[in-house]
């Protein structure tokens, strides 16, 4: 499986890099000029097995960086917001996948969050981030400051724990015989 080797040429990123490399380089240059030290790390497809560039931003600057990407770099579409449990310190990585409808490029922003640490919400920039942040909270237990309605979205509201954390048991069933409480005030 050539996809899994560490050679950047073997990944799908090789083709994309030939096509969009210059665009990405100029965009990352603009990000570095704007944010300087607050950009922690940049992983390019030419040197790391990834399909699109990964920009690690400090947690305090992530909303500003995403806003800059949206307004100046024309990444108008938040195609995904998710997280990973790295089992290291800091524990979680939040992943923001963006797509540009004008330049047809994608870019990935990441920020590292410690356990029991809150991250600012993205709802004010992309309202669609509302449910995705709820999913991240449900699955990983990462809380978002300023989120309008941070409840569980997939699991039962009586559920204890966050199932996609690495230390959650694979077969940690919690069976409920009664259906969960319906929030009638939300039905309005």
């Amino acid at each position: 499986m050539s996809q899994n080797t560490l050679s950047p040429i073997a990944t799908n990123g090789g083709d994309l890099w030939a096509k969009f490399g210059e665009t990405w380089k100029s965009q990352i240059e603009a990000l570095k000029q704007q944010f300087g030290e607050r950009i922690e790390e940049v992983k390019l497809p030419s040197e790391y097995p990834t399909d699109v560039p990964i920009v690690y931003v400090k947690k305090e600057a992530i909303i500003d960086a995403l806003g800059f990407a949206r307004s100046t770099l024309e990444y108008g579409f938040l195609s995904d917001l998710t997280a990973t449990d790295e089992e290291s310190e800091p524990r979680f990585e939040l992943v923001y996948n963006l797509f540009s409808h004008t330049k047809f490029t994608r870019i990935r922003f990441k920020t590292r969050v410690r356990e029991n640490e809150e991250c600012p919400t993205l709802v004010n920039l992309w309202p669609g981030a509302n449910w995705q942040e709820r999913e991240v909270f449900d699955m990983f237990g990462v809380r978002f400051t300023g989120h309008p309605d941070l409840r569980r979205i997939l699991m039962d509201e009586r559920w204890v724990g966050h199932p996609l954390r690495k230390d959650y048991p694979l077969r940690g069933y919690q069976v409920f015989t009664e259906a969960q409480h319906i929030h009638t005030e939300l039905l309005e």
Partner: peptide, 9 residues
């Protein structure tokens, strides 16, 4: 598991 109480009802 979220469907189970509905099946029961």
């Amino acid at each position: 598991l979220k469907m189970a109480p509905i099946l029961k009802s």
